[in-house]
Simulated assay, not measured.
Amino acid sequence: MRALIVDDDFYSRNMIHEILRPVARCDIAVNGEEAIEAFRRGLMAGEPYDLICLDLLMPELDGQQALREIRAIEQECGVAPRNEAKVIVTTMLDDEKETHDAFFLGGATAYLVKPIDEDKLMTEVQSLGLL
């Protein structure tokens, strides 16, 4: 499995990386712009990401905007819906509007509230069929 971890907080990035490292090749981005670029590079190289752990609140370009752009890139490249990257939104906010927007407007696959619990993350990854 190939995973992209997107978070502006070092602690959160490191925590998710440590959890996923045994089961995934992980890349890291610190904001939405880096995430979009990494996603595009992976797709163009024929090595798309299977999983994206995406923080919502980030500087420069937030997770909501990055997710919409990632989904647009997949659509432009003809990626079938069943082959789209699975996106787990990670955030400190337990906010119904943010959750609604991430799922229904952005195309998120799952939602976890920080701090990320190892068992919850691995259960989610497994339920998405990535393990």
Results as ranks from 00 to 15, higher is better:
residue 3 A to V: 02
residue 3 A to F: 01
residue 3 A to T: 04
residue 4 L to Q: 10
residue 5 I to P: 13
residue 7 D to K: 04
residue 8 D to Q: 10
residue 11 Y to V: 15
residue 13 R to N: 15
residue 13 R to W: 08
residue 13 R to M: 03
residue 13 R to E: 05
residue 13 R to C: 05
residue 14 N to H: 14
residue 14 N to Y: 11
residue 15 M to R: 12
residue 15 M to A: 05
residue 15 M to T: 15
residue 16 I to T: 14
residue 18 E to F: 02
residue 19 I to E: 06
residue 21 R to C: 04
residue 23 V to F: 00
residue 23 V to R: 03
residue 24 A to H: 00
residue 27 D to E: 00
residue 28 I to G: 03
residue 28 I to Q: 13
residue 29 A to S: 14
residue 29 A to F: 07
residue 31 N to Q: 03
residue 31 N to W: 15
residue 32 G to R: 03
residue 32 G to A: 06
residue 34 E to H: 06
residue 34 E to I: 02
residue 36 I to L: 14
residue 41 R to T: 08
residue 41 R to A: 09
residue 44 M to I: 09
residue 46 G to R: 01
residue 46 G to P: 00
residue 49 Y to Q: 04
residue 52 I to W: 12
residue 52 I to K: 05
residue 55 D to T: 09
residue 55 D to R: 07
residue 57 L to R: 07
residue 57 L to D: 11
residue 59 P to W: 09
residue 60 E to Q: 08
residue 60 E to V: 07
residue 61 L to H: 07
residue 62 D to P: 06
residue 64 Q to Y: 01
residue 67 L to H: 07
residue 67 L to V: 08
residue 67 L to I: 09
residue 68 R to W: 06
residue 70 I to H: 06
residue 71 R to E: 01
residue 72 A to V: 01
residue 74 E to S: 02
residue 74 E to G: 11
residue 76 E to N: 00
residue 77 C to L: 04
residue 77 C to A: 12
residue 78 G to I: 14
residue 79 V to W: 12
residue 83 N to Q: 15
residue 83 N to K: 10
residue 86 K to R: 13
residue 86 K to L: 09
residue 86 K to N: 07
residue 87 V to Y: 11
residue 88 I to W: 08
residue 91 T to Q: 11
residue 91 T to V: 10
residue 92 M to L: 13
residue 95 D to S: 10
residue 99 T to A: 12
residue 100 H to A: 12
residue 101 D to T: 06
residue 102 A to H: 04
residue 103 F to H: 06
residue 103 F to Y: 07
residue 104 F to I: 02
residue 104 F to Q: 09
residue 108 A to L: 13
residue 110 A to W: 15
residue 110 A to C: 13
residue 111 Y to M: 01
residue 111 Y to Q: 00
residue 114 K to H: 07
residue 116 I to L: 08
residue 116 I to Y: 10
residue 118 E to M: 13
residue 118 E to V: 03
residue 118 E to S: 10
residue 119 D to L: 01
residue 119 D to C: 01
residue 119 D to I: 00
residue 120 K to E: 13
residue 121 L to V: 03
residue 123 T to V: 11
residue 125 V to Y: 14
residue 125 V to S: 02
residue 125 V to D: 14
residue 127 S to I: 03
residue 128 L to Y: 04
residue 129 G to V: 03
residue 130 L to K: 13
residue 130 L to F: 14
residue 131 L to T: 12
residue 131 L to K: 14
